[in-house]
Design a protein around this nucleic acid. Structure first.
Length: 422
RNA sequence: GGUGAGGUGGCUGAGUGGUCGAAAGCAGCGCUUUGCUAAAGCGCCGUACCCCAAAAGGGUACCGAGGGUUCGAAUCCCUCCCUCACCGCCA
């Protein structure tokens, strides 16, 4: 969430930055300023009353211990107590309103973020590799059916549409990719592997900004106030919530494999063919916690770490930067990695690498000591490294041969156990 | 799920209604002493917010969380969360 002091001191700057998102959030700044001013006025008055009560109560204690009369003092304090109760209610109401508004307000896009309305304005940052030359390539659904890599009809019988059941070589390829990616990130890129819970508390979902605004996209548990994590970002970024980290232990670098659960409410019929958009999918996620000074450098290297997977697999991809209108709620800067899908003749998003600056950290109260011993909010970053179903789809489409088999990249051999499917 | 014991500052740990934001010790920082190391002595050493143009300074809140009792709560009562032990159940 945004720093109320920044809003107070530079409201025009905040308004201008928010306006680049095009979501109309800048309109709430005046309301926020009004509530903030009211809150501070009431808080000051409340503190004066508390000080008076504190002093008088001590006087009463002193008088009583000397056996003196104190009833008129007690009456006065009782009166003050009533005033305090009233003011207290007002200030905490204002405090709650302020917090609610701040939680609904997205992060400020970085000042250098490309300005644009939607995805069509996202600039391509770089391209790696070339499109494979395939004549009349099959798409991943046809390949999946042909080689019995997954069974969508039976998955629907179990859980409805939008679920995958990988089968045979498909299940093995899925597992091989997970293991391969975890090994690269832990052994070559220096991330510490976590295997976190998949169910998380409401506070964690607020911390990483899935809540309160996007609750309808989440799977919640009846009677438990817990949620199925929509991404490992939630448990991993919240791992150090409410902690004060030492500067020398930063950056923290974590990698985690988890399944991800998303209702995808409202997206029925959109990109829903095959395994491209589903309610449950596997993902390997990268998370970093850094200082404000190093976060943008760490953002570049995190993105490079995710790209490395596609390079090792020999898959053609491009990196785009999200423009202000397409940027995620909590992000200040995001690169998306898009892998080439020969079957669909399109690029598929397989990773989104974001710098949240201190936006999530402020919600989670995640801080670190700086050189002066002061507590400062960390910067948090994350990126998929990578998301499985789309990677899987691109991989089998790109690997298909004229003989009708699917070539598996050499580097997966130790994990998959074979170089070919079919 | 049941019963019992607990949750106090970076750590250990005292504190059962007032002068307690909290003893003491450890760790940390500064100074003094010292041939180095070590030791000793003295001082400093929580967080958030509010007031103040700012600094200096002042103030309020916080002893797991939230309510309640009281003139006054770390301390008494209630609910919840968490930890530990035992029982039940169980991969």
């Amino acid at each position: 969430m945004l720093d109320i002091r920044l809003i107070r001191e530079k409201p025009d700057f905040v308004r201008e930055r928010l306006a680049t998102r095009g979501g109309g959030d800048e309109k709430h700044i005046d309301e926020l300023l009004r509530i903030d001013a009211l809150r501070r006025k009431d808080e000051t008055a409340l503190q004066a009353l508390n000080a008076e009560r504190k002093k008088l109560s001590k006087d009463i204690g002193g008088r009583r211990s000397r056996g003196e009369e104190s009833s008129e003092l007690e009456d006065r304090v009782r009166q003050i107590g009533d005033d305090i109760a009233l003011l207290n209610e007002q200030t905490s109401a204002a405090d709650g309103q302020q917090r609610d508004l701040l939680l609904q307000m997205p992060n400020l896009p970085h000042v250098h973020a490309p300005v644009g309305r939607d995805a069509s304005a996202n600039p391509v940052v770089r391209v790696w590799g070339d499109k494979p030359e395939l004549s009349n390539p099959l798409d991943h659904v046809a390949l999946g059916v042909k080689h019995k890599l997954f069974d969508l009809e039976r998955a629907a019988k179990l859980s409805g549409s939008g679920f995958i059941c990988f089968t045979g070589a498909g299940a093995r390829l899925e597992r091989a990719l997970i293991q391969f990616m975890l090994d690269v990130h832990t052994r070559e890129h220096g991330y510490l592997e976590l295997s976190p819970p998949f169910l998380v508390r409401r506070d964690c979902m607020i911390g990483t900004t899935q809540l309160p605004k996007f609750e309808s996209d989440m799977y919640g548990l009846e009677g438990n106030d817990m949620f199925l994590a929509p991404t490992a970002e939630v448990p991993v970024t919240n791992f150090h919530r409410e902690e004060v980290l030492r500067a020398e232990e930063l950056p923290k670098k974590y990698v985690a494999y988890t399944p991800c659960f998303r209702r995808e409410a409202g997206s029925a019929g959109r990109e829903t063919r095959g395994i491209i958009r589903v309610h449950q999918f596997d993902k390997v996620e990268l998370v970093k916690m850094t200082t404000s000074e190093s976060s943008y450098g760490e953002h570049e290297s995190l993105t490079a770490d995710a790209e490395r997977i596609l390079q090792l697999l020999g898959l053609h991809y491009r990196v785009i930067e999200l423009c202000t209108g397409d940027l995620g709620f909590g992000s200040a800067k995001t690169y998306d990695l898009e892998v080439w899908s020969p079957g669909q003749n399109a690029f598929l998003e397989v990773s989104s690498c974001s710098n949240f600056e201190d936006y999530q950290a402020r919600r989670m109260n995640l801080r670190h000591k700086d050189a002066d011993g002061k507590n400062r909010f960390c910067h948090t970053l994350n990126g998929s490294g990578l998301a499985l179903p789309r990677l899987f789809a691109a991989l089998i489409e790109a690997g298909q041969t004229v003989e009708g088999t699917i070539r598996v990249p050499e580097i997966l051999r130790p994990y998959f156990g074979a170089v070919e499917i079919g």
